[in-house]
Simulated assay, not measured.
Amino acid sequence: MFFHHCAYSTTNQHASEGGVREQWVPLFDEFRVDLVINGHNHIYERTDALRGGKVTREVEIGDTVEPDRDGTVYATCGGGGKSLYSFPVPDTFAGEFESYHWVKGGEKATETVSWSRVRYTGYSFLAIDVEPAWPGRRTTLTVRTLRNDGAEIDRFTLRRTAGLHRSRHGTVLGADPGDV
């Protein structure tokens, strides 16, 4: 899933868009979306796996995530051009810190963030390698974030069984009726 405004980001300039969280995140949770990629903020930032705005699994650089079980990973990839933004903490900071998100009426709501796992303020882009699979077999997306000189900043893999996806209500999505 890709769109512009960020559900989860901590830049000093824009941070997170509360309307996206309110309207879209419940759908991503229900349909077990693997990865959400946003732009808008001129940086790279990646979350841990989330459900309902809460960390369900910490995702270190190099980890493999199973979105059906672990949750959705959100990546802000806006470091490809123009001026770059800053973060309220250093790129290498680990742990909780204060940020904000926008709410209705254009107000900022302060929040304690524990979901921001990898941050980078230089120019960067995503490279995603896909290994498709037949229904019932494992498929993967390997997501790498590269600096403008090609050096790797981040890497994680999303893995699921192809064609056997269930919503939170137990509805099987994307499978032939005979596969269920």
Results as ranks from 00 to 15, higher is better:
His169Asp: 12
His42Leu: 14
Leu126Thr: 06
Asp34Ala: 15
Pro132Met: 07
Val113Tyr: 01
Pro90His: 04
Thr157Cys: 06
Arg32Leu: 02
Gly71Arg: 07
Gly53Ala: 07
Arg155Asp: 05
Thr72Gln: 04
Glu17Asp: 15
His5Arg: 11
Ile61Thr: 14
His42Glu: 09
Ile61Cys: 09
Thr139His: 05
His101Gly: 04
Pro67Met: 09
His5Leu: 13
Ile43His: 04
His5Cys: 06
Gly163Asp: 04
Ser124Cys: 15
Leu146His: 12
Arg159Pro: 00
Tyr44Met: 13
Gln13Lys: 12
Asp34Asn: 14
Phe97Met: 04
Gly78Val: 09
Ser86Trp: 06
Val180Glu: 10
Glu60Val: 00
His5Ala: 10
Arg57Gln: 14
Pro26Ala: 12
Leu84Cys: 05
Lys82Val: 06
Gly19Arg: 12
Thr92Phe: 08
Thr139Ser: 14
Thr157Asp: 04
Leu141Gly: 02
Asn148His: 12
Arg32Ala: 13
Val73Ala: 08
Ala49Leu: 07
His42Trp: 12
Asp48Tyr: 05
Ala94Met: 06
Phe3Glu: 01
Val20Ile: 15
Met1Gly: 05
Glu58Asn: 11
Phe2Ala: 15
Lys82Leu: 11
Gly174Asp: 01
Glu66His: 14
Arg51Thr: 09
Asp68Ala: 15
Asp129Tyr: 12
Leu84His: 09
Thr139Asn: 02
Ser86Pro: 01
Gly79Trp: 01
Arg147Ser: 11
Ala175Lys: 02
Pro177Lys: 05
Asp154Gly: 07
Pro26Ser: 13
Leu84Ile: 13
Pro90Leu: 01
Ala15Leu: 06
Trp115Phe: 02
Val65Gln: 04
Ile61Gln: 09
Gly71His: 02
Ser16Ala: 15
Asp149Asn: 15
Thr72Leu: 09
Gly95Glu: 05
Gly81Arg: 11
Thr10Lys: 00
Ala151Leu: 07
Glu45Asp: 10
His101Ala: 03
Trp134Ser: 13
Gly122Trp: 07
Glu22Gly: 08
Tyr44Lys: 03
Val89Asp: 08
Phe3Arg: 00
His5Val: 11
Phe2Thr: 10
His101Phe: 14
Lys54Asp: 10
Asp129Val: 12
His165Asp: 03
Arg137Met: 11
Glu60His: 10
Val143Thr: 06
Phe125Leu: 11
Arg32Glu: 07
Lys82Asp: 10
Ser16Ile: 08
Ala133Ile: 09
Asp154Glu: 06
His169Arg: 15
Gln13His: 09
Leu50Ile: 05
Thr11Asp: 06
Val172Asn: 02
Thr47Glu: 10
Val59Ser: 07
Glu131Gln: 15
Thr142Met: 06
Asp129Lys: 15
His14Cys: 03
Thr139Ala: 15
Thr64Asp: 07
Thr157Val: 14
Phe87Thr: 04
Phe28Asn: 08
Ser167Phe: 06
Val118Pro: 00
Asp63Trp: 03
Ala49Met: 07
Thr76Gln: 08
Glu45Trp: 01
Arg137Ile: 00
Asp48Glu: 07
Ser167Asn: 13
Val180Pro: 00
Ile128Ala: 11
Ser124Trp: 00
Asn38His: 15
Asp91Arg: 01
Pro26Leu: 12
Asn41Arg: 03
Ile37Ser: 02
Thr145Phe: 00
Arg166Gln: 14
Trp134Asn: 09
Leu164Asp: 03
Gly53Asn: 09
Thr157Ser: 05
Asp34Val: 05
Pro88Met: 04
Phe31Leu: 13
Thr142Lys: 14
Leu158Asp: 02
Arg119Phe: 05
Val130Gln: 05
Phe125Thr: 08
